[in-house]
Amino acid sequence: MTAPAYLDTPSGRRLAYHRLPGKGPGVVFLGGFMSDMEGTKARHLETWARGCGRSFLRFDYSGHGQSSGAFADGCIGDWAQDAGAALSALTEGPQVLVGSSMGGWIALLLARALPERVVGMVGIAAAPDFTEDSMWAGFARDQRAALMADGRIEIPSGYADSPYTITRRLIEEGRENLVLRDPLRLPFPVRLLQGTADEDVEMTTALRLLAHIDCADARLTLVKGADHRFSEPADLALVEQAITEILPD
């Protein structure tokens, strides 16, 4: 495994990244909650970009992977800030954002904050507002009480042996970054990919996002039997196709 380079952000965090030079518009991969840049989708898309001669960036949010900080200390706003710093410092010109799960939410926040730097978006099981609409909405009364009283709770993870630590700050700060409550104009092509066997992000989330965004060129593809990882060869081919479809000529 090649050692990453590091970016020191204005907020004082140190982000690990891998950057591939090439032609633009480039592609930026935005990972999911507790995921890192060494995952199947990120590595696959880097290989694809290399074959196309296209620039590509993958990185770890603070508290994730090889970046600085503890995961439990972070929140959506921090990770969106990390992504904005990486986009600004490590890429040139407009980019296609590929957001997986939470990365889809981060991509929407970047598009809202830095619209001039985004030329297209691909959401893979995009999970906007999940801290409110999935986590908080799904917590039992005793879990909510414990979270408010103790500042954190632990919930089982379907992807690791250790549980997720969910903090009161994650939930409360997430409410400051919701994107499905107010108009959201996306003046570029958007492609959303969603598996029907996804147990973490429901199809209704993808449908709600598609209906909510103000976008002249937005499409949702439902893939029968695909799960949340969306990492089977056929799934990855669909991601490649979606990126190619929205890249400017």
Score class of each variant (00 low, 15 high):
Gly32Ile: 06
Cys52Ile: 04
Gly26Met: 01
Glu154Gln: 11
Ala70Gly: 05
Pro233Gly: 10
Ala216Lys: 15
Gln143Pro: 02
Thr196Arg: 05
Gly32Trp: 06
Arg144Val: 08
Glu202Lys: 14
Gly39Asn: 12
Gly151Ile: 09
Leu45Tyr: 00
Ala80Thr: 12
Asp182Phe: 03
Val201Gln: 08
Met1Leu: 09
Leu109Tyr: 14
Gly24Arg: 03
Asp200Asn: 13
Gln194Glu: 04
Ser68Gly: 12
Gly12Trp: 06
Arg229Ser: 15
His18Cys: 06
Pro4Trp: 06
Thr244Ser: 14
Ala125Tyr: 11
Thr2Asp: 12
Met135Lys: 08
Arg43Cys: 06
Ala216Ile: 09
Arg208Phe: 07
Gly39Thr: 06
Met34Cys: 04
Asn177Val: 03
Gly123Glu: 14
Ala137Asn: 11
Asp142Thr: 14
Glu232Thr: 14
Gly138Asp: 12
Met102Pro: 07
Leu147Asp: 02
Glu199Gln: 15
Thr196Tyr: 04
Ala226Val: 08
Gln143Thr: 02
Ala206Ile: 10
Glu173Asp: 05
Leu193Arg: 02
Ala16Leu: 12
Thr167Tyr: 00
Met203Thr: 14
Gly32Tyr: 07
Leu238Pro: 09
Leu184Glu: 02
Phe33Asn: 03
Val179Glu: 07
Cys215Pro: 10
Pro183His: 01
Cys215Arg: 10
Ala85Lys: 08
Thr91Val: 12
Val179Tyr: 01
Leu109Ser: 14
Gly84Ser: 12
Asp73Asn: 04
Phe139Ile: 01
Ile243Pro: 05
His18Arg: 11
Arg185Asp: 09
Phe33Thr: 01
Ala242Val: 11
Gly174Tyr: 03
Lys23Asp: 08
Thr167Ile: 02
Gln143Asn: 02
Arg219Trp: 13
Phe29Leu: 07
Gly123Thr: 15
Pro156Arg: 03
Gly151Ser: 06
Leu20Asn: 02
Ser35Asp: 01
Leu207Arg: 15
Tyr159Ser: 03
Pro233Phe: 07
Gly104Gln: 09
Gly103Thr: 14
Gly74Lys: 03
Thr9Asn: 03
Gly225Tyr: 07
Ala70Phe: 12
Phe230Ser: 11
Ala72Leu: 04
Leu30Ile: 09
Arg175Tyr: 00
Val118Asp: 13
Leu180Asp: 00
Asp8Trp: 09
Ala80Gln: 09
Ala72Glu: 10
Leu186Tyr: 04
Glu132Ile: 10
Gly63Glu: 01
Met37His: 02
Leu90Val: 15
Trp105Cys: 10
Gln241Leu: 10
Gly65Pro: 01
Ala5Leu: 15
Gly24Tyr: 00
Leu209Tyr: 07
Asp36Phe: 01
Ser162Asn: 09
Asp198Gly: 10
Thr165Gln: 04
Leu7Phe: 00
Leu87Gln: 04
Thr131Ser: 12
Gly31Gln: 04
Arg50Gly: 05
Leu110Pro: 13
Lys23Ile: 11
Glu132Ala: 14
Met34Ala: 08
Ala218Tyr: 08
Leu184Lys: 00
Leu15Phe: 02
Arg175His: 00
Val201Pro: 08
Ser35Arg: 03
Ala42Val: 04
His228Pro: 08
Leu20Ser: 01
Pro183Trp: 00
Met121Tyr: 14
Ser100Leu: 13
Ile246Asp: 00
Ile76Gln: 03
Leu90Asp: 14
Ala70Asn: 13
Leu236Glu: 09
Val96Leu: 12
Arg112Asn: 13
Thr91Gln: 05
Met37Leu: 10
Arg219Gln: 15
Thr47Tyr: 00
Pro187Gln: 03
Ala146Cys: 08
Met37Asn: 06
